[in-house]
Every structure is written in C-alpha cells, then in structure tokens.
Amino acid sequence: MKKNNNLIGWFCTYVPEELIHAAGFTPHRILPYNEGSRKDKYLPPNFCPYVRNIIEKIEQDKNSFEGLIVANSCNAMLHLYNVVKENFDLPVHLLHVPRLNTKAACEYFAFQIKNLKIFLENINGNVTTESLAETIKLYHKTAEILKNNWPHLNLAFPLKIASDYSTDVFDFFDDLYYSDRCGFNSRLENTNFSALSAEKVEDENDKYKNEDSNDYILLEGALPSKSLLNMISNEIEEEIIMDNCLSNRYLVSQRTSNLTDIYNTAQNLDDLLYYLASIYLNKPSCPRIFSSSNERTEIFSSLLNNYNIKAVIYHKLSFCDFSNYEYLRLKNLIQHTYNNKIPILKINTELEEQESGQFKTRLDAFLEMIE
C-alpha cells in the first residue's frame, strides 16, 4: 500500500464509517486477507485467526494510516487493541459497543461515538453538522441502490449482485470498501443488475419462497477468506446468498427506514450522532449482540422461511466461540424445526489459502450429495 496519511483503518461493522468520512479522512476497512503468511508474531497460533491476520496486515501497512479504530466486538478484538497500542506508533481508539439494543444502550453508544469524534478531531479531523449530514446521505444511497435490486438486503446479500458488478466478485467488495463512495454509487447505478428477484418480489415484506423461485445456497457464519468465497462461487451453480459482516450486515446499517424520522428531524450534531447510534444498533445483529436470547435464531428462521434454501454452508472460524455457538444454534434449528431436511456443511478455517484444496474436496462431495 502506498503512503496515504489520510487513511483511518477500521475492522468491525459497528464502527460508524460515516463519521470517519465526515471528519475528512478516508475510511479503510482492514480485512484479514493476508493468506498463506506467518501470523503468530504477537499472538499465539491457537488464537483467533481473524485478529492474527489483521495484526500482520497492520504491521505491513502501519505507515499508511493516520489512526485505527477497534470496536470491542469480542475478547480477541480487545487483544488486537492492546497489541496495536503496545507495539505500533499509531493513534488507536477503542470504541465500546453495547451488547444490548435498548434506548439506554443507544444513548450510551451515542456517547461513545461522540468520544470517537473527539479522537478523530485530535488527529486533525473536523466533523460538522453539515459534513456528517451529507456523508450519511452519501452512504445511505449505496444501500438504497442495492435494495432497489434486492429488497431483502436486511436478510441476506445475493452474490449475484457482485458478479453482475464484475466478473471477479471481489471487485465489488474492493470497490465497496476502498474506492471513492460517490464514484462507487455512480458505478452501481450504471450496472445492469440481473432481474435476480425483481420480477418475483416488489416489496421487502414479500417472500421469495414460491414454486417459481430459484433454489439458494446459504453461506452463513464468519467472514470468508477470498479463496473460500471464490471457490464457492466458482463451484456452485445455484444462486448464493450470504449473511455475514462482509455484505448485508455492513450494508444495511446504512439504511434503516423506520429511523428516517430521527434523521429528518435532527437539529444539531448530537442528534446526528444519536441517529448513527440508532442505525448501527438496529441493523441485523451479529452473534455478539444480545438484544434478546432468540434474535439470532429468528434471523435464521427468516432466512430459511423466506427462501428456497437447498443447503447451507457454514463457515466456522477456528478458536472463535461466537462462531461455534452460532453453528450449534443453526444446526439445532434445522434439526428440530425442519427435521434435518436442509443439508448443512460446516467448513472450519483459519483463513489460509492452502486450506482450499481439502475444502474443495469436501464441497464437491457435499454438492454431489444434494443433487
């Protein structure tokens, strides 16, 4: 990566990217895509591979960033914060994200976002009411364009959108996270998206599950490696939908229709910060949010009820408790509610490219079984 002192690195989809942009910086999501290299310099090998991978990426590109923002998503991310603070000469901020979605939690998170604003201003950023309002509109537009082509963006992201955007599906995600947002929105508007579901569904409350709809393969679990996602997209003929923080959990935070009144009536910067807190806590929850004990099960049920799910591929990240609990929750739901009629393949990875060979063998056998 070339030297660019305008970059602010972030990792978790609970970090309000709009605030970084409004402060005059370039948001840069650091993804764990250093496949095949050594990652145990700062943490033991039996530690979260996502975090170990990210730390190596930071070490490689440490001179490119003005600062980093770490959300306390889990205990491993707290270790990431400590490693960066102790080993790298970089400003780093720990964003405290509540594990509940209540009015009190939203007020708490708005206060934490205000502290993040102060952190950004201390490294030469400047956030105004006008700059934040314009940035929120800019980022909301991305999700609005995509929802015009896929009304169920709050539930899942169809990989077909990425392949319509470019023959290489990762071009979509690279542009989503690393290109100028205004330019990316323009390219989205000029993309000829296939009528993947528009002919069947006109409203986000409609179901995709009917006799004429396609079969879907659901990719669930932890954020996949590039090699794993490319392998799945190349090997599977059915349409693939994803529910993870690479896609829909990130995108839907930028457009929550039932909260638009808060935005439209915002009078000052504090109101906009509260609005950001609201939309981020109200997006589809990840496994670390405990708004209710059944929320994640309800999300799984909605996915299985709204689509013709032919099979599920679950990506489990090694040494990740949340990832393991989620798999057990989904497996239990399929077993007891769907009488094991939906096949599920669990793929356990450490985000390494060399793992793809054995996974291809297992995937090929799984696909042959469900034919």
Rank of each mutant, 00 (worst) to 15 (best):
W10K: 09
Y14D: 10
Y14P: 07
A22E: 04
F25L: 05
F25S: 05
L31A: 08
P32E: 05
Y33L: 07
Y33A: 07
F47H: 03
C48N: 01
C48T: 00
P49I: 07
D61H: 01
K62N: 04
E66P: 01
E66R: 09
N72K: 05
S73K: 09
C74W: 02
M77T: 01
H93C: 03
H93F: 15
H93A: 13
L94D: 03
V97Q: 03
R99V: 11
C106V: 01
E107N: 11
Q112N: 02
K114V: 05
K117A: 12
F119A: 00
N124H: 14
T128S: 15
S131D: 12
E134V: 01
T135V: 01
L138T: 02
K141L: 05
T142S: 06
K147Q: 14
N148Y: 10
N149V: 06
W150I: 00
L153T: 07
N154Q: 13
F157C: 08
P158E: 11
T167G: 14
F173N: 07
Y177L: 03
R181V: 03
G183S: 14
N185L: 00
R187G: 08
A198V: 03
K200G: 05
K200V: 07
D203I: 00
E204V: 13
K207T: 15
S213V: 06
S213N: 07
D215M: 07
L218Y: 14
L223E: 09
I232K: 04
I236W: 14
I240Y: 12
M242D: 08
V252H: 08
T256N: 13
S257E: 01
N264T: 00
D270I: 11
Y275V: 04
S278D: 11
P284C: 08
S285Y: 06
S293P: 02
T297Y: 06
S302W: 03
N305T: 01
N305L: 06
N306K: 04
N308T: 03
A311R: 11
H315T: 04
Y325I: 12
L328V: 09
I334W: 00
Y338G: 01
T349N: 15
L351D: 08
F359P: 00
F359I: 15
L363H: 05
F366W: 06
M369Q: 12
